[in-house]
Structures are given as C-alpha cells and as structure tokens.
Amino acid sequence: MTVLGTGTMGAGVAASLLREGHEVTVWNRSVDKATPLHEHGATVAEDPGAAVAEAEVVLLTLFDTDAVVDVLEAAAGEAPTDAVWVQASTIGVAGTETVVQLAGKYGITLVEAMMLGTKAPAEQGKLTMLAAGPADVLDRIDPVLDAIGAKTVRAGDQVGDGTALKLAANAWVASITAATGQSLAIARSLGLDPDLFLQAIAGSAGDSAYAHVKGRAMIAEEFPAQFALDGLRKDIGLITDAARTSGVSTVLLDALGRVYADASAAGHGSDDIAAVGTAF
C-alpha cells in the first residue's frame, strides 16, 4: 500500500492504514512531512517511482491537479501493471478529466475515493469515503477504504462521480461554516453572548453537530487547522467552476468565495476554516 502525499489528510490516512495492519510506503515532496510516519512503521520512499514499485494500491492524496499530474507522470511506469490507483485529491471536474486521460495513456487502473472529513477523522479512520469506478475494482480496495473510513458511499461507476459528490458536500461544508460565523457575529453585535445561538439551535430541526464544533472554535477564537481555510477556498473555486459549467447559479458560491477570501487576506489562510468567522 502506497500513499503519495502526506499533508494533513495523507498523513492521517497513512497512520490509519498502519494502525489497521497494512504495510505502508509513503512519499511526500517535502520529506519532513513524511518522516514522522517512519516511527509508526511506514517505509519512507525517496521519490514517487520508488514508492510505488511494489504497490498493490496507490493512494493519491495531493493538493491540486498539477501535483497529481506531476506525481502520476513520475511514478506511472514504475508500479506493477495490476496496481489500483486511487485518486483521493480534490481536483474538480476538469482536473479529474485530465487525470482520467493520463490513466488511459499509461494503462493505469484508476478509481476515485474522495475523502469527506478533516484531520481528526483522517487520523481516527473515521472519514466518509466517496468512491467511484467499476464495482469489481472498488471491491478490491474495500479493505483499504474500510481502514480509513467509517463508511463508504459509492457515487457511481465512472471516475468523476466521486468528485461530483465531493464538490456538492464541500459546498455544504463551506456554507454551514460561514453561516455559523455570521449568526454568531449577529448575536454578538446585538449585545448577546454568542453561545446563546448554539444553545438555541441545539436539538432543534435546524441543529448541526458541525455548527457546534466550528462555532465553539469561533467563540474561543482558536483555529488549529483541521481543514485549512485556503484549502477550502481552493475547493470553492472548483465548485464554482463546476456549477457555472453545469448551469447552476453561483450567487451563493460567489458570496462564499468573497467571505473566505477576506478571512485569508486577514492572515487566516493556514488556520482552520472556522476562522471564516473573523470575516464578519
């Protein structure tokens, strides 16, 4: 089992795989982000080609399309021909189409397993996996998905269906996080303890566990990154592109883009997405 990319999500996923007894090889462009996994039993490879040389499954957990393309082209010819490559990076519709074309060029067996969740669920093996691809190939990687996720939703039999579902889900994450920040700011500006908002929605039809998690961070003004704000900004751009291309109104997405951009410009780009509350 090989994990290419050991940033926030990749490192957590690799740790979960190791905990579940998988033999794991890892690689990251910045080796200092991969080295700590050696202490947990992972083999740290010097380059992508070496990392995939004996892999049965290759998991791509990288930041954007350019990174996925670079790594795939560097490693494609080095992996066993029967290896399954699992694209788990959020790269949008166009990026996914590019990777599918490259997989065809190199004769790679490719499926998707988008990761819905943040740092803690990745480390705990409690992500929701949004899988797509031929059913028989997905069956082969079920033990991997079970090790890193609490459940797997099969979005379809075409690579790209998982990406579509991930974009829809992240639109929800971006919306509810920003909406929580807005409501807390309104309560505070009108002279109330903002925690009263969380008390008011608790247990109601409009309640959300996510609103409480992010709301508590906003009230405490503590933003250790579980999902970096600039990472979600990147995703909002991908979601907006997909919506515009498919004829969905981008009015709300455009507003979200501006709000997250304001928080990033104020110095919160590497903080958790809860820092979007500062924009209000």
Rank of each mutant, 00 (worst) to 15 (best):
T2Q: 02
L4V: 09
L4F: 00
G5V: 08
T6C: 14
G7F: 00
A11N: 04
A15P: 01
A15L: 07
E20I: 05
G21I: 03
V24T: 07
V26C: 07
D32I: 02
D32Y: 02
T35C: 02
L37T: 05
L37S: 04
H40Y: 09
T43S: 14
E46G: 15
E46V: 14
G49Q: 06
A50D: 14
A50G: 13
A53F: 00
A53C: 08
V57T: 12
L62K: 11
E73S: 10
A74K: 10
W85E: 09
Q87N: 03
T90P: 06
G92D: 04
V93Y: 00
L102D: 10
K105T: 12
Y106P: 08
L110R: 07
A113G: 12
M114T: 02
G117K: 08
K119R: 15
P121G: 10
K126L: 13
K126S: 11
P134W: 02
A135P: 11
A135D: 14
D136K: 14
D139V: 13
D146M: 03
D146Q: 14
T152C: 06
V159S: 09
G160C: 07
A164M: 04
L165R: 08
K166R: 11
A171H: 13
A171M: 13
W172Q: 10
S175Q: 14
T177Q: 15
T177F: 03
A179V: 15
A185L: 02
P194K: 13
L196N: 07
F197A: 11
A202R: 15
G203S: 14
A205Y: 15
V213S: 02
R216M: 10
A217K: 15
F223I: 12
Q226M: 10
F227P: 07
A228E: 13
G231N: 11
G231S: 04
R233I: 02
D235S: 07
D235A: 05
I236E: 07
G237W: 01
I239G: 11
A242F: 01
G247P: 13
R258T: 12
A261R: 12
D262N: 14
A263Y: 04
G267Y: 04
H268T: 14
S270Y: 02
A274H: 13
G277A: 09
T278I: 10
